[in-house]
Amino acid sequence: MESNTTEKELDVAAEGGVLGDCALCDGKNILLKESHSIPKFAYDWLKQTSSTNFIRDTRDVNVRHQDGPKKHLLCGGCEGKLSAWEKKLAEGLFKKIANYRKQNSVVVISEEIKLAVLSVFWRALLTTKDDENNRTDEDKAVVDAFLEASKQDILNNRCGSTICFAPFFGEPPIYGLPIAHTYGIERSIGSQDIRFIDHPHRYFAVFKLPFMYFYILSPGWDFEETNKATKLEVGDLDVSKIQDIPQILKDYIGLGYKEFLKSKAAMDEVNKEQIRREVQKNSGKVTGSDKSLRRSGQ
């Protein structure tokens, strides 16, 4: 019997990819790479600093993971472009703040770091926009417009969005948040969302890496909120001088803590015992997760 498999399809299978359209450059019927919506370096850091060597998600707490979510989204060229920016983000910002030994008080923000953050916003919100939510048609139109504008900025190597940054530097409590929130602040990842508030209609977009949040406030927010936001701008940034963050971000962190507590309560005995065994294997070794537990009063 004759095979209908083409040479191109065989090449795709050999590379572990799929054929499709690139979400960034719109290339048609090409090999798509698996793209992380949240950078892989952050998930690697979580595993390396964990007492279990695994990752757990509050949405499926009884399943352990070795990596973060990824989808066949981009062609090789676009994936390579964003990966180069992500390397700048990892080396120039993330590893200097998400550091249990010594945090850097001054970081240097480059245009590539801003573009890397914008690309994470774009991928994270694009790949979750059809998840269950209570967005109105007006909200959905705003999300689509934000995604299209971000896509064009990424294609043209520019960042037209005003991105804000909330690093967690020094000893807790920080920004007046409860000490109990510290573990999640230092070790949770993702939390990508774009939330809408009416009167006036405005949004708050956000995603999280360990020890830091990135967020965008649309037009329409009061000065009391925007005045507490630290913009991610090219140049030196002394994170030790950041004294406060907007209340909307504090509220979002509080919601994340409640979800964390719910997930803990939902963990079954089999997985609790699995974690105990994994921790025992690393007994005698003080990990980053141990330090975050202590810093959060647990």
Rank of each mutant, 00 (worst) to 15 (best):
P200Y: 07
D222S: 15
I194C: 09
G220E: 11
H201Y: 10
S218A: 12
F211T: 04
E186P: 01
I185F: 03
I163A: 02
H199C: 13
I179T: 10
E171H: 09
I185K: 03
V206L: 13
H201L: 15
S218K: 05
E171D: 12
T162G: 06
K208P: 00
E171V: 07
I197F: 13
G184N: 15
S161F: 15
C164Q: 11
I197P: 05
W221S: 00
Y213S: 08
R187F: 11
F207I: 03
Y203V: 03
G190H: 02
H201R: 15
D198E: 11
R195I: 10
Y213D: 12
L217E: 13
I189P: 01
Y203S: 05
G184P: 01
E171L: 08
D222G: 11
F169T: 09
F169Q: 13
P167K: 05
S161W: 09
A180S: 14
G176V: 14
Y175Q: 06
A166G: 03
G190Q: 01
G170T: 14
H199Q: 14
P173K: 14
Y183L: 14
W221G: 07
Q192E: 15
M212I: 07
I194W: 05
K208T: 00
I189T: 05
P219K: 11
D193H: 12
G176T: 11
L209A: 07
Y175S: 09
R187P: 00
F196K: 15
I179Y: 05
F169I: 14
F211L: 01
M212P: 05
F168T: 04
L217Q: 05
H201V: 08
E186G: 06
F168P: 01
D222C: 03
V206R: 14
P172L: 04
R195C: 11
S161H: 10
A166T: 01
M212Y: 00
I216E: 03
F214L: 04
T182Q: 12
R195P: 00
F168I: 12
F168R: 08
E171N: 10
E224N: 13
Y183P: 06
W221K: 04
C164K: 12
H201C: 08
M212V: 06
Y183I: 02
I197E: 13
H199W: 05
L217A: 03
D193M: 00
Y215M: 09
R202H: 12
W221P: 02
R202F: 10
F168H: 06
Y215A: 03
F207D: 03
I185W: 04
C164A: 15
W221N: 00
P173A: 15
R187T: 07
P210H: 02
R202S: 14
